[in-house]
């Protein structure tokens, strides 16, 4: 049996050229707190960018794959999603 690889281990394989400011913004933090018990973005984000920290959503934009799932999948359309500045963000080397 192979050991299951964690998302942290997977993310370690990826090259990022992170910008100094985030390209992802939760528009209204109150919606996450009061209206969204599932916090589904913390489940489907393939890079585990979104982490719920007791009362607020932590957005680890530095590890974002820029796939767009959070913008489309947020049930409250509560994520402002832009591309990182030119040349920044994820840099795929192979696939």
């Amino acid at each position: 049996m192979m050991k299951n690889q964690t998302i942290e281990e997977k993310q370690y394989l990826v090259r990022f050229n992170a910008d100094t400011k985030s390209h992802l913004h939760v528009l209204d933090p109150n919606i996450c707190l009061t209206k969204c018990p599932d916090k589904i973005c913390t489940i489907f984000c393939p890079a585990s960018v979104y982490k719920w920290e007791e009362i607020r959503m932590h957005v680890g934009y530095e590890g974002c794959h820029e796939c767009g799932s959070c913008r489309i999948g947020c049930p409250y359309e509560n994520i402002k999603w832009e591309y990182p500045r030119g040349g920044h963000g994820i840099v795929f080397r192979l696939g």
């Binding site: 192979m2 993310q11 990826v14 393939p46 890079a47 799932s69 489309i72």
Partner: peptide
């Protein structure tokens, strides 16, 4: 993805390989 990699029908194909990049896209 880990589930697929560990599936008994798949595991023998990839056994001993080393992951070198992880990617996500729509």
């Amino acid at each position: 993805l880990e589930y697929v990699k560990n599936h008994p029908m798949i595991r023998p194909y990839i056994q001993g390989s080393e992951p070198i990049e992880y990617l996500a896209h729509l």
